[in-house]
Computed example of a mutant assay.
Amino acid sequence: MDPIARERLFGFRHAFDSPVTFWITIAVIAALLIASVIIWYLHARGRTSDKLHDELVKRVVSWAVMTPLLLGPVLLGAAWTILAVAILSVLCYREFARATGFFRYRSLSIVVVLGIIATTFAIADHWYGFFVAIPPLTIVLLAMVAILRDEPRGYTQRVGLGVIGFLLFGYCLGHLGYMANDADFRPIVMLIILTVELNDVFAYIAGKTFGHRKITPQTSPNKTLGGALGALVLTTTLVSTVGHFVFAGSGVDTAVKLIGLGLIVSVAGQFGDLMVSSIKRDIGIKDMGASIPGHGGLLDRFDSMLLVAPAVFHYIAFFRGFGLDQPTRIFTGGG
């Protein structure tokens, strides 16, 4: 293996080479500590009920557990980042398959998982040609395998669920993993994770403060126009500000392009949330799972990332590319 590729994949000694990576890590830890103190203080002063206090504690504890699981792989190296995204993809797909009943079609479910595995290999190999070929190949395989049941009734639904499951949880999320092929992937991936999650927080706070008009009452009754606009302004400002340091000296580092990046993160994040809400309303459930106390399932927590990852990937790639100076086809040796 090329020494440059080995260092990017497994080298953790350069985890904090970028000041942005260091300060994002410090900011996240500080935010958790400050939130814990505020929750304790409000409860001690009688400002929160026992029920609300317990709910807030659950959320903070969940974030305290998720934070090292999210940031740890990024700091350890590209290989761990790619593996973490692959595991997240499989777990999110599992929740989707169980919620929709798609898990009953085992042969099709196996095809989806194989597609996720193939996507992960293409990412780790830094083989972009294979990466873009996997979706049509997986769809072709789903269409063929579904015929073998010899059950024309429900064929469209079975194939459609399989295609949606793979594209959203295998391929869309896979774009986040592919960013790890860039030499400066750590601050980029951390910026996306941080701002996507804060976009939800901004929408919630702005909605509680200014929100009156519902935008999609049938899909997500708590979503308001004030919350959406507040998140749009705050997230765009945050992405533009931090992004200036992340992309300093690159083709992305102009005011207009950074604002565009911020708008994409906020808009795609909110639509990702609404998309999963639409799926849940369609099948008549409140949460996709119960694996994260105070949040629901993994898919309930990371739904905003589904549309952000591919949109941001191709936006940034258009102006500066990803991993253009890195060895390609690391394992297959065709680069």
Rank of each mutant, 00 (worst) to 15 (best):
A86V: 11
S62V: 11
L148N: 12
G160A: 14
F202P: 04
G230T: 02
L307N: 02
I264G: 01
I279L: 09
V189C: 08
D253V: 05
A248V: 09
L56Y: 14
L33M: 12
T67E: 14
A143N: 09
M179Y: 06
R59Y: 10
S240E: 04
R13E: 11
T48R: 14
L258S: 01
R104T: 13
T209N: 07
F131W: 03
S278A: 07
R106I: 13
I164K: 06
G170W: 04
G260W: 01
L148S: 15
H53Y: 15
A311K: 02
A5Y: 06
I164A: 15
P136G: 09
P310E: 08
D287G: 03
L70G: 12
I316Y: 04
A206M: 07
G211K: 03
F121A: 06
M179D: 04
I316T: 05
G160F: 14
I215L: 12
V140L: 15
I24P: 04
G323T: 06
D2V: 03
M144A: 15
L161D: 09
R149S: 15
V159P: 10
F166A: 13
I4K: 12
L142C: 10
L9T: 06
A84L: 09
I330D: 05
V28Y: 10
M66F: 12
A84W: 07
I117P: 04
Y128W: 13
S89E: 12
N199T: 10
W63V: 13
H314C: 11
L229R: 02
H295V: 11
S250D: 11
E151M: 14
D325E: 14
L88Q: 11
L299T: 01
L75S: 10
A78K: 08
T48S: 15
F166Q: 10
G323P: 04
E151A: 13
L56P: 13
I164R: 10
P187Q: 09
A290S: 13
R301T: 01
I24S: 02
I316F: 12
S240C: 07
A311C: 14
G297P: 02
T119K: 01
F130N: 06
Y155F: 14
L176Y: 11
I279E: 00
I29Y: 14
A124T: 08
I192M: 10
V256D: 03
P3T: 09
K280S: 02
K214N: 00
G260K: 01
G115F: 07
A133N: 07
M275H: 02
I188W: 03
T195D: 07
L234H: 01
V159K: 05
G323L: 08
A79D: 07
G333Y: 08
L191E: 09
F131R: 00
A124F: 07
L75I: 11
G323N: 06
L173F: 13
H126D: 01
M179F: 08
Q218I: 08
F12D: 03
G323F: 07
I24Y: 00
T236M: 03
F322N: 06
Y105N: 05
V112I: 05
D50F: 14
F318L: 11
V111T: 05
L75C: 13
G160K: 12
H295E: 05
G297D: 00
L71H: 08
L232W: 03
K257P: 00
T254L: 07
F271G: 01
V111S: 01
L91Q: 03
S49M: 09
I87V: 15
T254H: 05
D325S: 14
V65F: 15
F210A: 03
I292L: 08
G260S: 02
S266A: 04
R94S: 09
D54M: 15
Y128R: 11
G211Q: 02
F271H: 04
